[in-house]
């Protein structure tokens, strides 16, 4: 409970850096949407948005934090929370314990959710970011617990919370523990709201099922990145159940905007100024800390 008084020095990043910062031999990246070959350094400068078709590449949590926060301001919290295996789960092909080990090795992350404090355009905030590479950004017990602790920090220091979401939903391998994280997180964020502290949610590609159907869309402000898949059921499930062909653009961020589900669709390069404006406006309500 007192963990947020401890300051860690980006432990998730240090371990992630060993694997993810290696410069790949191939310095070109192919745009998954328009197939344009893009020079990696240019992509990096363009915040990983295709210069030809504006496709927004998926970001690692580390990249997202670097893009959004003021340099050197991010401090990770509760980095050493680890999933146990409450169901002792094993499917025909693999055990959850193995899957966790592999995911940790592959990503250098301890879990799919990172939380911490930072400043954005000089405004202090609590940040919670999903990394989709870790088991599809799925929400299990650690994910839920970290979000509750993020809310605790926000309540303690009177700060707003920004969540950056990219998730396939509840983590199957933790069964009902995962489903209940929907209630656990939403209940915690409702408490944040009762204390008049804002929750801003950024929905990124892809965001479906249990995360979209809980805290991520019950936020005060819901922002979506262009082209992001956002929905409840996955498109494949819908096609299989209804035996209908899905209309073009179905379940995209733009589709959600058109149907009145999100406040705005904001291109990546405009995120920081937009969030900065929102944080400044909310800080004028008087309830927020304005200095870190």
């Amino acid at each position: 409970m007192k963990d947020w008084f401890r300051r860690h020095h980006h432990p998730s990043f240090q371990s992630a850096g060993a694997t993810s910062r290696e410069i790949p031999e191939d310095l070109w990246e192919k745009c998954p949407k328009c197939s344009e070959l893009l020079y990696q350094r240019e992509l990096e400068n363009n915040e990983w948005v295709c210069s030809r078709c504006a496709y927004h590449f998926r970001l690692r949590a580390e990249q997202r934090i670097a893009q959004l926060t003021d340099e050197g301001s991010f401090e990770e919290h509760s980095a050493y929370l680890l999933s146990t295996d409450p169901l002792n789960f094993r499917s025909a092909t693999e055990s959850y314990a193995d899957k966790l080990r592999q995911s940790r090795e592959k990503t250098g992350l301890s879990e799919s959710m990172l939380i911490g404090t930072a400043t954005l355009a000089g405004c202090p905030l609590v940040l919670a970011v999903t990394d989709f590479r870790f088991m599809g950004g799925s929400m299990g017990s650690v994910y839920g617990e970290k979000l509750v602790r993020a809310v605790d920090i926000a309540l303690d220091r009177r700060l707003p919370v920004l969540t950056v979401n990219a998730s396939g939903g509840a983590r199957q391998q933790e069964g009902m523990f995962s489903l209940m994280q929907m209630a656990k997180t939403t209940t915690a964020f409702a408490r944040l709201g009762r204390e008049r502290l804002p929750h801003i949610s950024l929905l990124t590609d892809p965001c479906t099922a249990g995360v979209t159907a809980s805290y991520a869309t019950s936020a005060d402000i819901v922002i979506a990145e262009p082209g992001a898949l956002i929905g409840f059921a996955g498109p494949r499930v819908i096609e299989q159940t209804t035996r209908q062909k899905l209309p073009p653009g179905f379940q995209t961020a733009e589709f959600c905007l058109e149907h009145g589900m999100v406040d705005m669709v904001t291109p990546r390069r405009e995120l920081r100024p937009t969030l900065g404006n929102l944080l400044r406006i909310f800080s004028a309500t008087g309830g927020l800390s304005v200095v870190s």
């Binding site: 409702a190 709201g193 979209t212 809980s214 869309t217 409840f232």
Partner: peptide, 14 residues
């Protein structure tokens, strides 16, 4: 989906 299934469920949880 068009009418925001995920959003409706989230609103109820809240």
């Amino acid at each position: 989906e068009e009418r925001g299934q995920a959003f409706a469920i989230a609103a109820n949880l809240c």
